[in-house]
């Protein structure tokens, strides 16, 4: 009984040490309370997310959304070019029967649903694009306040909140 307890204690110490090392290493991979992260992101090992929105009618919203995120951390979003490999492909679908405005897949694409997106204001369009770009950065929904870009539902908010920035810090640490 006693030796078993001792073994358990050694196991805990070892695991704790390992946890510390690993937490330090993957950073936000194991997140703490205030950051809302997905288990994946679409940022490459050079800390860039190169987007291709040639096919999307909302390309100007993507340009401006990328600028907003880059104003907080410069140079992460870059338009795709011949010299770089695309990390996220942004295109439009028209699914009148679907209730989503946008979706981001870990397989490397963002779909924007024209059927619904064309019905909302330009701020709401901008909010959707900013939100989906946030998913590409690895941010999950954060429903603590509707002023978050990463709030689950569409709003007219077009500026990053302090919670959005804090989650981005945590996600950036794991790129």
């Amino acid at each position: 009984m006693r030796s078993r307890r001792k073994l358990q204690r050694i196991a805990i110490i070892l695991l704790s040490a390992l946890t510390l090392v690993v937490v330090g290493f993957v950073g936000a991979g194991c997140t703490t309370s205030n950051d809302y992260l997905l288990s994946w992101h679409l940022v490459d090992s050079g800390k860039h997310c190169d987007w291709d929105a040639n096919q999307s009618k909302y390309e100007s919203y993507v340009v401006s959304g990328a600028k907003t995120w880059n104003a907080y951390k410069a140079g992460v979003f870059r338009p795709d070019s011949i010299s770089v490999v695309q990390d996220v492909r942004i295109s439009d679908v028209s699914e009148l029967g679907e209730s989503w405005l946008g979706e981001t897949s870990p397989l490397g694409y963002i779909n924007l649903n024209k059927a619904l997106l064309d019905e909302v204001s330009s701020n709401c369009k901008q909010n959707t694009v900013l939100h989906e770009l946030g998913h590409a950065l690895g941010l999950d929904h954060n429903d603590n306040a509707s002023t978050n870009i990463m709030y689950s539902y569409n709003t007219a908010v077009t500026a990053l909140s302090s919670s959005d920035k804090s989650s981005y810090d945590a996600s950036y640490a794991r790129y």
């Binding site: 997905l38 989503w100 946008g102 979706e103 981001t104 897949s105 939100h131 999950d140 539902y153």
Partner: peptide, 12 residues
């Protein structure tokens, strides 16, 4: 599993 994330116009 590759779970896509969506933003809905309704509370699903």
């Amino acid at each position: 599993l590759a779970p896509a994330v969506r933003s809905y116009v309704i509370n699903i």
